[in-house]
Computed example of a mutant assay.
Amino acid sequence: MAKLNKGYVQVYTGNGKGKTTAAIGLAVRAAGDGMKVYMIQFLKGRRTGELNSAKILAPNFQIFRFEKPKGFFWNLSEKEKEELKKEIIEGYKFAEKVLKNRECDILILDEIMGVLNNKLLSEKEIISLIEKKPEDMELILTGRNVPEEIINRADLVTEMKDVKHYFEKGVDSREGIEY
């Protein structure tokens, strides 16, 4: 069974497809080696295939969501945005507790940059999570438009870049591939 002596901060960003997929790939590998992986998914309310995968890999890989299913952020009413903000804060507080109590070997904050870009959490709050990371825990952040200050605090930053995408040909999101 693997154990981390030193954990790092990883960021998966960019406009290309694959940020969450990369994080889940790492989670599957780590869970297979006996590590405990928590993934907190933000801004994702609909059913996705990774929820089923996590059930198969449980208890080593667990996914947590705090939001009720909603539409895209830009389509929400002000009341729905306020409700979403409360749910995001609940997820944030859970992340703080996980870090404080060192409840897992790897903590993935999926789409945390989307939360930041939609002003549901501040850059300062996300940096606070990075600073609270235990020495022997890996922290993975995903999402587009990562601020320079967060990039500077990360140990690894991978940018997913669109070179060609079938969405441009009108292909919709496909179950098992995009969600």
Results as ranks from 00 to 15, higher is better:
Gly7Glu: 11
Ala58Asp: 08
Ile151Thr: 13
His165Gly: 07
Ile40Pro: 00
Thr158Tyr: 08
Met113Asp: 06
Leu121Arg: 06
Ile177Gly: 07
Asn118Phe: 15
Ile24Asp: 00
Asp105Arg: 08
Lys97Ile: 07
Asp155Trp: 00
Glu131Ile: 03
Glu67Ser: 13
Ile127Asp: 04
Thr13His: 10
Arg65Gln: 14
Gln41Gly: 07
Lys36Phe: 06
Thr21Ser: 14
Ile126Asp: 04
Lys44Trp: 02
Ala95Gln: 07
Tyr92Ile: 07
Gly34Val: 13
Lys17Met: 05
Ser128Val: 01
Asp33Gly: 15
Asp110Val: 02
Glu123Asp: 12
Cys104Ile: 05
Ile112Thr: 07
Ala31Leu: 04
Met160Thr: 03
Leu141Met: 08
Ser173Thr: 12
Phe66Trp: 01
Val163Gln: 12
Leu99Tyr: 00
Gly32Ile: 03
Leu99Pro: 02
His165Val: 01
Met137Gly: 00
Gly49Cys: 10
Lys79Met: 07
Ala22Tyr: 10
Asn152Ala: 14
Leu26His: 03
Cys104Lys: 00
Lys3Ser: 13
Lys97Leu: 09
Val28Lys: 00
Leu4Gln: 05
Arg46Trp: 09
Tyr38Gln: 03
Asp162Thr: 15
Val171Met: 13
Asn101Gly: 04
Val171Cys: 04
Val98Glu: 03
Lys86Asn: 14
Gly71Ala: 11
Asp172Trp: 08
Ser53His: 05
Ile112Cys: 07
Ala27Leu: 02
Thr20Cys: 04
Glu103Thr: 08
Asn5Tyr: 13
Lys132Ala: 12
Gly176Asp: 12
Gly34Cys: 10
Glu87Arg: 11
Gly114Asn: 11
Val115Phe: 05
His165Pro: 09
Glu123Pro: 07
Ala95His: 08
Phe94Trp: 06
Val28Cys: 09
Glu82Leu: 13
Leu57Glu: 08
Ala27Glu: 00
Ala27Arg: 01
Asp110Pro: 03
Lys169Leu: 14
Glu159Phe: 08
Glu125Met: 14
Arg29Leu: 09
Leu26Ser: 07
Asn117Ala: 12
Gly25Cys: 06
Ala27His: 02
Ser53Asn: 11
Glu90Phe: 06
Gly176Glu: 06
Gly25Trp: 07
Val37Cys: 03
Gln41Ile: 05
Lys97Glu: 15
Lys55Pro: 01
Glu67Ala: 10
Glu138Pro: 01
Val9Leu: 15
Asp33Thr: 12
Phe167Asp: 05
Tyr166Leu: 10
Phe61Leu: 15
Met160Glu: 10
Lys81Tyr: 11
Thr20His: 08
Val115Tyr: 02
Ser173Cys: 12
Pro147Ser: 13
Cys104Gln: 07
Asp110Asn: 12
Arg29Gly: 10
Lys93Pro: 00
Lys79Cys: 00
Lys19Phe: 08
Lys97Trp: 08
Glu135His: 14
Gly114Gln: 05
Met160Asn: 05
Phe167Pro: 01
Lys44His: 06
Thr13Ile: 09
Ala22Trp: 09
Ile24His: 02
